[in-house]
Amino acid sequence: MNAPVANRQKLVDAVVETVAGLLMGKEQEIRLAMACLLARGHLLIEDLPGMGKTTLAQALARALGLSYSRIQFTSDLLPADIIGISVYEQASGAFVFHPGPIFSQLVLADEINRTTPKTQSALLEAMAEGQVTVESETRPLPKPFFVIATQNPATSTGTFPLPESQLDRFTMRISIGYPDPASERRMLMGADPRLQLARLRPCVQGEQLDLLQRAASKVQASEAVVDYLQRLVQYTRSEHQFELGLSPRGALAVLDCARAWAMMHARHYVIPEDIQAVFPAVAGHRLQGASDVVQRSGALVEQVLHAVDIL
């Protein structure tokens, strides 16, 4: 095993460990979030309130040394509230752009489905393009730029659920879920997470994150693994229990995340297990069961993995 590969794994492990110190017993979810970040994707967390979505986002920002802002989405939020606004300054006699909260490296978009489609699409556009255009002036967003959006599946009154096309822009969707009793007990017995968060020190400095992202994109995906991925994708498109198959963007996202996952596990090549590890999170929200198949999308994804062989 060559040194850089091992170093990268150590680096990622350090970040995961740090975050896991706050969000106890959720290592798998943290790793998925990391993989998503390393694949330069955006993350959608769908979970009940109080499960640690914000903690995850803040801890990640801290551990990675990223600038962080949080936008609480409400129904009266306007695009300008996110992107920023030009204000006339009497002192200089000119309009000066006041950047909105989106000009941060890690943006937590809380309860994204509570706001109007107009505002949603402003965020999603920024996510897709890595830049915003305000008053015919294009402003690049900071790099790396990582959005963690959350939505609450329990209360759907007065919400604007994201349509499939916009769901597709999120590389991954995960849910955190309740901690196991032991982890919860440790959390309850331990120090206040808010205090811990303030004490958190970044594990990654300066350019390192960018290097990691670059290394992830260079992980080798052999023909055999691409074959396997294509068979998975083909299965979702040809079998009748799926209303919608996996889009090419979805397929690419699976491969990118699998690459990141392989790198996180100190490998310079992708194996089927990498694909299987990220597939539910990447494909789950893109696949839709046929209208009359009453099933969770999770079960559908599991079905794909069990039906398509790796050979």
Binding site: Q276, V308, D309
Partner: peptide
């Protein structure tokens, strides 16, 4: 199993 990777 069908779909089981070599490592698993």
């Amino acid at each position: 199993n069908t779909g089981e990777g070599p490592r698993d």
